[in-house]
Nucleic acid binder design. Structure first.
Lengths: 363, 363
DNA sequence: GTGAAAGCGCTAACAG
DNA sequence: CTGTTAGCGCTTTCAC
């Protein structure tokens, strides 16, 4: 069996208390004693069991992470960011995924609380109304939402509304007037809601008519005829598509390719996520980038601030800057000038970064 | 504070022993008592602390997972597979990533062993010679390697050598004779070594001359002139490229596109990994697919078999079937017939599955 | 059927 | 500076 502090004490010829002190407060023991204890620790290959410490109650050095899925690179990158800092700080990560299922979210959090995690980092389906989070606020360990875009709870994310607005304004600045927003058929997350609000805002600001999101089935091999018709026929035919995420954008690009619609000549495409892989497409996908790794890192920092300094009960909301990832999927087109374009110019200050965050790692 | 078994005992008017029994062996207590205890558990919202149980020593229900990175979809998908089964079985996952760093691998395993995990699932840089694994064999908890392709240790993976051979044989069957294998500049992992061995084997079997792997810097924006020259000039000019992974294949495809080399007309491309995203490229990337989610699941099963049934000390090696993901990046070309093509025909039995494993999940 | 008590590995008073 | 002791939350004999 693995050696315990008792074995070390016996081997070194001291009490377990002295061994404990030698390990946790070396300066309080006699150097000679220290040496003997260290020697015993070495020969027995003793590693103090966190369980004993954890049971004593002070700190478990455990943090729970709850994510919808790892199949989406955005969340995998966030987790990567958390893990970097957590490992360096000597914390252990307990991970669960939920597949966007509220029941699984609850079970996961219950399990993690039972394990006495010191804090939680989580991405939930919808953060605005969520009894689970209310409970956490009331009597739970500190937590930080990640990628959830809500005003009412501690969270780290980009401003999805503003980011979407910026993207749509860029499309408008390129001469587009009929811009349609596309989304996945899943029930709207807070993120997607915010992105649509941003789209609506930018359109109205420019005096253009926003439309409801058009839902696309990403599982299908091709775009259904009805969708294709909506995209390519009639006076309402859009000249640009704003896709609520990059994977959707890629699926749509494939669908258009099969339908012989040229991108960007006949249709401009803007995605959201800034996946590194988008830069490898032909043409490279223009997208709104979110700093995923950095989001994970900052969520960690916010959380440890709450854990360490008891001062502020809840971490504040932290808004990280988004970026515009330029690509080849947006064409400038000639069109009637707008009455007012003053508000468009401010996007110039945005850094034009190409996929800053996600560098691939090759196996 | 969170309630303990003591609080429940006090509330119900029984001893903590009875409460413990009511929870863990309900049939051994008086039904009336059971009801009272249950009621107390409900009102206090008592959740037994795993820490107490874990300290008692029997089982921690903790499993450690050590991966090189999550930035690569292959590993993220594996983890997804593990998590599915682990959560269902009531196990908790402790995760660490290593960035292919041996030092971090060791620290991660040390930390997890200290936490008294009941088992480990890990992907290491190179499994064949690895003191860490020898230690685990000697006195550690059971472990299973995932995606590491080695004969000498418990592992779940595809047969990388055979998979690579199958892929190269397919290229040969399409008429290709000058086939080059491309790899990333990283020090070779056991996987890449096996894949190259498979390439060499298939080439020699067909009487063709294998060549050393050509290393490509995937971080660069374009292919360097020297590489481009090797790929496009002279009599040794290859007609097909076998890339040791899909991301590399995509980078190479972009490089060729920029150099105005048409795929597949002037160059055929075969990748390895079967990333779902490959199907979204133009043309869709042909690749050798690995069942990642299933690899994770099977690694879990192998591990729990070792944990549960003390019978076999070590789980055996498990080889999962690979698949050929058809795409549009391979062209048939006319070429001199081979002396012997009998050995090629056997690839017909391989399932031609298009990206069976990785369905995207959209946020 | 139930309770008292010991002990898992460790830390933190409190004595010596 | 070091040892003794009392728990942390829980399970598990062993009596009653």
């Amino acid at each position: 069996m693995t050696p315990t502090i008792k074995d070390v004490a016996a081997h070194a010829g001291f009490s377990i208390a002295t061994v404990s002190r030698a390990i946790n407060a070396p300066h309080t023991v006699n150097p000679a004693t220290l040496a003997k204890v260290r020697e015993a620790v070495e020969t027995l290959r003793f590693r103090p069991s966190p369980l004993g410490r954890q049971l004593r109650g002070e700190r478990t050095r455990l943090v729970g992470v709850v994510l919808p899925t790892l199949a989406h690179p955005v969340f995998a990158e966030c987790l990567q960011g958390i893990d970097e800092l957590a490992a360096a700080a000597g914390f252990r990560l307990m991970l669960t995924t939920t597949q966007y299922d509220t029941g699984r979210e609850r079970r996961a959090v219950d399990m993690l609380r039972a394990q006495r995690v010191e804090g939680l980092i989580l991405t939930v389906a919808d953060a605005d109304s969520h009894p689970l989070l209310d409970e956490l606020d009331a009597d739970g360990p500190p937590y930080v939402l990640m990628h959830n875009d809500t005003q009412h709870r501690p969270a780290v994310s980009v401003d999805n509304r503003e980011a979407a607005s910026d993207g749509v304004r860029m499309l408008i600045a390129h001469g587009h007037r009929r811009i349609l927003m596309l989304s996945t058929p899943l029930p709207a997350s807070d993120r997607v809601r915010q992105r649509h609000a941003g789209y609506v805002h930018a359109m109205q600001q420019a005096g253009l008519a926003p439309e409801p999101m058009l839902e696309i089935d990403t599982a299908a091999d091709a775009l259904p005829p009805s969708v294709l018709a909506r995209l390519t026929n009639g006076a309402r035919r859009p000249t640009a598509l704003f896709c609520c995420n990059d994977l959707l954008a890629m699926v749509v690009m494939r669908g258009l390719r099969h339908a012989r619609v040229r991108v960007p000549q006949e249709m401009s495409i803007l995605g959201f996520d800034g996946l590194a892989m988008g830069a490898l497409l032909a043409p490279p996908l223009a997208s709104i980038g979110t700093p995923n790794r950095e989001t994970g890192r900052m969520a960690w920092r916010q959380l440890t601030a709450s854990i360490g300094g008891e001062c502020t009960g809840a971490a504040p909301r932290l808004v990280l800057p988004h970026t515009l990832c330029e690509g080849g999927t947006i064409a400038a087109i000639a069109s009637a000038p707008l009455a007012d374009v003053a508000h468009i110019t401010h996007i110039a200050h945005l850094a034009r970064v190409s996929h800053e965050d996600g560098e691939f790692e090759l196996p």
